[in-house]
């Protein structure tokens, strides 16, 4: 892995500058214009050389940072970022599949359960009639047949429902796989962050040598409350944040305060 640290010899730039400045003062006192210009040129030379060095390091650092962002999969030539996108696409695919599988199974099970329930309600009505001795013998024979059929049908339905329920359980196995994938992507993101911090330090070195100071341009444009555009942001992970509702009850309170 490439080193992205600031050159430990960096202070020598300061030392060199200091020496040259002292030299310049001596030459000015001496009054030889040619020698003075010579020292000024030397100062420029040191500055340029150090600047090119630092920019070179910064460029290399950027390149290595992009190249080195990999998590795990060393066999792949692809960059870590590309892999991360693929990994997250895999998470979407897995969760989509699991959600649809679960819904398929639940939808298959609902009519079976409804059949059990409706059968039981119907049989109970007739059974109560029987207990009240309101059934004729041929009606009772009919009821016996129905009860018998209900026993068989309920067993078939219940077995199917059991299978569907355990398949619904199994369909949740995506959580383990997607969890692992998301952990790897999280690791990648922290790695990227660490590298960006290194790069900021290196860029700071360039700024120091060139004497560039970045104006506080962002602070000059305060966001107008009225102009703040209302855009979709997706789910709020942290509901304790200012301006985020804690759930449906908060939404209802807010809307009712608006006259809803």
């Amino acid at each position: 892995m490439a080193e992205l640290k600031i050159d430990p010899q960096a202070p020598s730039f300061q030392q060199e500058m200091k020496d040259l400045a002292e030299d310049l003062l001596t030459k000015i006192d001496g009054g030889d214009l040619g020698k003075i210009v010579g020292v000024v040129n030397n100062i420029n030379g040191v500055r340029d050389r150090t600047l090119y060095d630092e920019i070179g390091k910064l460029t290399r650092g950027l390149h290595n940072a992009i190249k080195d962002i990999k998590t795990g999969d060393e066999l792949s030539e692809e960059s870590g970022m590309g892999q991360a996108s693929d990994k997250l696409a895999y998470v979407i695919e897995m969760t989509d599949k699991a959600a649809n599988r679960t819904m398929d199974l639940a939808e298959e099970g609902m009519p079976l359960n409804a059949e059990n329930l409706e059968g039981a309600i119907e049989l109970q009505e007739q059974w109560k009639k029987f207990l009240r001795k309101e059934l004729k013998p041929n009606e009772f024979r009919e009821l016996s047949k129905k009860i018998d059929a209900y026993f068989s049908q309920t067993q078939i339905n219940s077995k199917k429902i059991s299978t569907q329920l355990s398949n619904i359980l199994m369909a949740q196995d995506f959580q383990d796989l997607t969890g692992q994938v998301i952990q790897r992507v999280t690791k990648l993101v922290s790695e990227v962050e660490a590298r960006l911090v290194d790069l900021v330090a290196m860029a700071g070195e360039v700024d120091r040598i060139t004497g560039i100071s970045h104006g506080e341009s962002h602070k000059n444009e305060p966001l107008q409350e009225d102009d703040k555009k209302i855009i979709a942001e997706g789910p709020q992970i942290d509901t304790s944040l200012e301006g985020v509702v804690g759930g449906q009850d908060d939404v209802d309170d807010l809307l009712s305060s608006l006259g809803f």
Binding site: K228, I230, A232, E233, G234, P235, Q236, T239, G243, V244, V245, V251, L254, L255, L258, F260
Partner: peptide, 14 residues
């Protein structure tokens, strides 16, 4: 029916 849960957003929708 949305995941958007900021007060400003709810007010804007209203």
């Amino acid at each position: 029916v949305t995941a958007e849960a900021k007060r400003d957003q709810i007010v804007a929708a209203a």
